[in-house]
Design a protein around this nucleic acid. Structure first.
Lengths: 199, 199, 199, 199
DNA sequence: GATGAATGAGCATTCATTCAT
DNA sequence: CATGAATGAATGCTCATTCAT
């Protein structure tokens, strides 16, 4: 029993990991399901036992990887003992971007599938109540010394700007390498946050 | 001579237009070259006379459509007699977004192929001197009452924010329908512009 | 298990036989893979399960047919109880040529793909130790009353001469029909053999 | 007039030379007519003005190149002042093989299209009377001190042996590099010649 | 559950040949 | 004579999906 379930999990995980590896190295379009199963060491039919098709596994991967990313950032924040919403949000953004800067294939994978789409979908779609990351954001906002209006809009605007601009800066060094672009980005983020403060 | 060249242009244009239509309705992945040529009323081989493959014609289309979009916005600006960089940039952004809002398939087509990638590549890569749109932006900046530092960074930041945020707002009404999100976006844009002003 | 493997063998063999038939009747260039699979009664994809492409199956066919040919000749020799290297080699050559004379399509198929290339490659390339036919030749040489020098050269010269001359004589009756050319060929072969004798 | 004819000849020759170059470098199957005309700098339609198809130009090339080869050998023989049929034939064979050894692409081209097929077809088919090379051979035979029977058979046997064996020895160094195989080949040739002597 | 042989629709691409100019 | 745009049949090959074992 446990042994069989163990085996099932192992196969599914092998497919998951292999798919991620192939998607990031060869690209989604050039990765065939046969590539995945072959490299994962399972039979072709087994793939269909766990995933509907290539896009099913892709979507699950994007969500999974994005969650990982923000969980790590959130945990680092907890340990950092930073106060003030501005600094906290910038800490998170910075943590995520730094991670992605060291892992270009992941940046590429997540971005190509709609820049920051992972986060966005995580944040602004689906049932928000069972969304850990979103809840965490709200908490940060709630604990700040200031009050904020249109919190959703604020988060959305920041995420879109940071995600889109950082992607290009990190990937293509356009218009500047990220190290140089960083201060401009964070200045803009701070301005956006401030503009949502209420008396 | 004139007759032959005329005919060539017609065929190429037919392929171009048909490809655009199919890409926007069925999506790129589901559009086969045979679909394009069939609908365009030319032979299969003719396609390869003018384009290398599906992605060649796609890239040419994206650039073409993005140029159209900004040319129209630029022309409208000239006629509108608006003064002040802030209002001018917002006018352009607004014009582009309004156009795209009325033409979702185009928004989808351009966005999927790297959000605002067209503009970005138009603006921030390649030979800038033979880049009409970019020149036009610089002129606007130059004629403003204020001086601006890091103009490239400013334009880039605005484009990324506007492109990315508007795409989601218009396409998915997330986090708000664009009509409601618009003031927030433009407030952020104005803040970014102001932050680049120099004494 | 047995059933599946049995089925696999049947399909592969069907492709093999059908390919041979089509290659010999229509020629390789005019035989499409779709012709083969259609006639063999299997799906297109099945072909690629067993062979890389048209040239892969062709090469395997040439080797296979050449082996068949020499195996038959070798077996006939064993039963004929002939003594003396000269007579033995001529018996083999004669057996092969006679077989090919009765089977022009096979002659044509094998010849077009490098005259006697099959035998040559069988004899003079690859690992000689696991080459049955070559071993058999060596045995014949070893058991003769005479000693021979440069055995490889001798075999090579005979094979080239016999293969090339017989091909033309049999196929085109040039310069004579084979029945009439035969004595000349064998006289030459005997001279070559004798010239390799050592004291 | 002359000018136009001059132009015609130039185009035809350009096609001829270009085809040879492409056939020897890329192989016949991989050379498209469009490759030839493009490289030759003429229009596609022009090809069909002078040649029926790819195989037409190939055949003409083989004949042309083979003629060149034997003409050169024949001329060299005249200047060398060699006496005796054996030495004369071996001189010719040696001259041809040496030339081919320095020009592997040509060897490959001629051989692939039926080993020595060029010569064979030149020698043993068609109207023999208007065949310079054949006539020249007959003359050599006639002027020898000995009389020879079955001259056609003798020439044929020698050509097949030399062509086939030399091709492999030169191209693949099998079973020996040609420098080492040469004495064996010429010994066999001399034996064949002697065996055709009549009292 | 797991397998992997078999399928065959689907697609990109090539290329000889034609013919209006 | 020469051109080269246009053609579209032909073909190799891929790959998601099924299903008997």
């Amino acid at each position: 029993m446990g042994k069989i379930d163990e085996n099932k999990r192992r196969k599914k995980e092998a497919l998951f990991n292999t798919a991620y590896e192939l998607f990031t190295t060869k690209g989604i379009n050039s990765t065939a399901i046969s590539d995945i199963v072959e490299k994962a060491g399972v039979a072709k039919g087994t793939f269909y036992l766990y995933f509907k098709d290539k896009y099913d596994i892709k979507n699950k991967l994007v969500v999974h990887k994005a969650k990982e990313l923000f969980d790590a950032a959130g945990n680092a924040l907890s340990e950092a003992g930073i106060h003030g919403l501005e600094d906290q949000l910038i800490f998170i953004i910075d943590h995520v971007i730094n991670t992605l800067e060291k892992n270009k294939p992941l940046l590429n994978f997540i971005s190509k599938n709609l820049v920051m789409g992972a986060l966005r979908s995580t944040l602004f779609t689906g049932e928000k109540n069972d969304n850990e990351i979103y809840e965490r954001f709200l908490e940060l906002v709630a604990h700040d010394d200031y009050n904020y209006g249109d919190v959703d809009v604020m988060l959305f605007t920041i995420v879109e700007l940071a995600g889109s601009a950082a992607y290009n800066s990190v990937m293509y060094q356009e218009p500047l390498p990220f190290a140089e672009y960083r201060p401009f980005l964070y200045r803009a983020v701070r301005l956006i946050i401030k503009s949502h403060r209420e008396p």
